[in-house]
Design a protein around this nucleic acid. Structure first.
Lengths: 137, 137
DNA sequence: CTCCGTGCAAACGATTTGCACTATG
DNA sequence: CATAGTGCAAATCGTTTGCACGGAG
């Protein structure tokens, strides 16, 4: 299944790239509607899913809340507000993270931190390999 | 408004402490039902909210669609599976995080990482101070 | 005896999906 | 012209809430 570049997809991608606020699907929907008034929210959701699946954009998953999207796929760090749920970038990135240093240079009142490494757990890895075999045979 | 210790709250807390898998509200609901078959899911949600508000447990801010909860409130790190959304702890914690070191010692196939610092943004901080003043006067 | 907590059902908000139609490659 | 993508509405999923009743302190 190959990707087609539709006007909807193009505008969604353009708006996401213009924005630096990690918008949610419906914020993006409002932006895109200015150019394409007849677009549906479902289309926005479908495209964001497809584009992040393809590695063109990235999804920021914060539990139980609205998903946010990011045009930047390179690894970088975020700081987010537990009250209003806005997400900001932390400038620069290093593989050796000095927490004190990062925390000190932000305007936020820091309440905690989590290092979230994402990956595929051993169980899912096994499962994936099994599925690949099925597709081949 | 002070907290009362009901049997429901007690069992929810006990089950969460027994579990090391960062359960979701409905996983916890299934566990608690074994002891209290008449409990409702809403009660589980209400208690998890109240307990994390009180700092007795913590809500995990990154994962899939469902919220996950953790009996451990001390800051520590997580690694989570982008496929099945399970969350595991990273042993120990250091303020100086050496990513390479952490990544190397896990069974996961690592796909990326985010440092999520939580806090209150300057706007919300201002807002909060204003509200405190109102309550006093 | 006060008022916090409960169970139930209904409401809600975010996201997904089935369908018939459209338009890209 | 095949088939990926669209708009719409309905469905779904996780979570929250209103209400009348129950029980902890």
């Amino acid at each position: 299944m190959q990707l087609r570049m539709t006007s909807q997809r193009e505008v969604i991608l353009k708006e996401l790239r213009k924005s630096c606020s990690h918008p949610t699907a419906d914020e993006l929907y409002d932006l895109v509607k200015k150019t394409l008034p007849r677009i549906s929210l479902a289309t926005v959701y479908r495209n964001l899913e497809i584009l992040s699946e393809a590695g063109i954009i990235s999804k920021i998953e914060v539990s139980g809340r609205q998903k946010r999207y990011d045009a930047v796929t390179e690894p970088h760090h975020h700081i987010f507000c537990v009250k209003c749920h806005r997400i900001d970038n932390l400038d620069g990135y290093r593989s050796e993270i000095d927490l004190q240093e990062i925390i000190a240079c932000e305007d936020y009142l820091v309440t905690g931190y989590r290092l979230n490494i994402t990956g595929i757990c051993p169980e899912c890895e096994k499962l994936e390999k099994r599925q690949e075999k099925v597709q081949v045979s």
